[in-house]
Design a protein around this nucleic acid. Sequence first.
DNA 1: GCCGTTTTCGGCCCGACTGTTTTCAGTCG
Length: 555
Amino acid sequence: MENKAIAKIFKLYSQLMELFDENPFRTKAMASASFKIDKLPFSAAGVTIDQLSTQPGIGKSTAEKIITILETGSFPELDNLIAQTPQGVLAMLTIKGLGPKKIRSIWKDLGIESIGELLYACNENRLMEAKGFGLKTQEEIRKSIEFSNANQGLFLYAKVEKIAATLLGSLVSHFPDQQHVFTGDMRRKCEIISSVDILTTCSISEIQSFLREMPAYTAEEQQDTAVQLSDELGVRYRIQTTSEERFAIDLLITTGSETHIRELQTIRRTLPTFASEEAIYEALGLSYIEPELREGAGEINWAKNGQLPQLITYADLKGTLHNHSTYSDGVHSLEQMAMYCKDELGLSYFGICDHSKTAVYAGGLSIERVKEQWIEIEQLNQKLAPFRIFSGIESDILSDGSLDYPDDILAKFDFVVASIHSNLRMDEEKATQRLITAIENPYTTILGHPTGRLLLSRPGYPIDYKKVIDACVANQVVIEINANPLRLDLDWRWQRYALEKGILLSINPDAHRTEGLTDMQYGVYVARKGGLSPERCLNAFSLEEIEQYFAKKKR
DNA sequence: GCCGTTTTCGGCCCGACTGTTTTCAGTCG
């Protein structure tokens, strides 16, 4: 089991302790243990109980619980609290804006034990009756439940990717002589997946007998040429069968999107059958369109006129900007992060952007710490040359749009990523103005995660995209594509507008540990959806080019 | 529950923001 999963279990334990009104100090100790476990620079599964209990914030009792979790998946005290909590009350913990204290009141005072009942109570104006609740809280909770309901059955691409590969892999090993590929949303690399679609040349009866050997999947629906199934996580799958002859055309049609296919059909009502997708596009008078681009957002006109962009690939990335280290809330040290980029990823530069001083909860850097980091960067740059570490900062954009350090400090960074982390509840006008003020700051190099969204979990503040992008153009500010699979923010749907305006984008992993650096792959997927080519991507610049870019920006 | 010690008991304790209060509790990043 990974540290993150163990940390989640302790988080749940501390939430339940709070729900049951246990000693707040013990509760806090568990919450802090969760945090500490998540930030351990080694796997808890690989060390002894003594090594665990010498870690700060992890005592003997917590270490024992960790061991029990590794052996059994849980521990008795937690099981006991779970047994006393109705399923629906447990589920309330996932609703934004609702913490254990409020849930306790909802459960114990109003007798509400499920999210369905809770929504009903909001609509009936009954939540306001409970102490500590008012109209606004009730509205927030109602909105939050509706947001979460709308996301039922949807999964992050990154979460589905590995489990979907298992099913595809089984098909391949069962039927090595047949063709099996992802199609649909998976093949178009959509950031949110509602169904994992697979196209296969197996017959339907072969698929049926194959599935009988796979008890982990439940059949949902049988059709003549397809089966739908689901797994224990609730991920839905659709396996579509086809013939060798129709493979390419069925691949094209099932890949979609629906809009893209409809637009193709306006060129020729019945799409022709050829041996490859390339040949089909060619017969329609189009150059080949990469699956990621097939969203009906102008790509057919590009293909008609030979204007398709050369889409960026992972191999085009020469470096990485916006990453964290143990200076703030990262797991690995500056040197470990840089070395990983140099030796494991073969990159030629690394940008460090730890949190700025306002982000106290994340160990944001005081000016003194910033200066210490600059000294270490200088030493490492001598040691690692020609590899280069760029000194950056992820500066909080404060409520009035200003940045987090005085100008003389901001001026000394190689580059500055400006992001919003606090006071997220804003209307569109306020959010847009706050961002524009930050964009107009002469020290801002990159605008970090423009909307603050967390996919399937938090919508992000509303912004006027055009105004924000136009301001970036006017002030030569790069927009980040935050590649964390929960963010993928800037949304690819706005990339095409940004690129038309001549903007540069940067695929930033926002890594808090070495493993997080390869999240850049998810950024590449959505960047391709948005039509990004390497020459318009800041971290696809060579070391010399980006040095010049930063130097010019600073002038 | 963890930690550190004037060492086995007593103190621990993000801070801003919001909404609900009318001085503070709960939630979040």
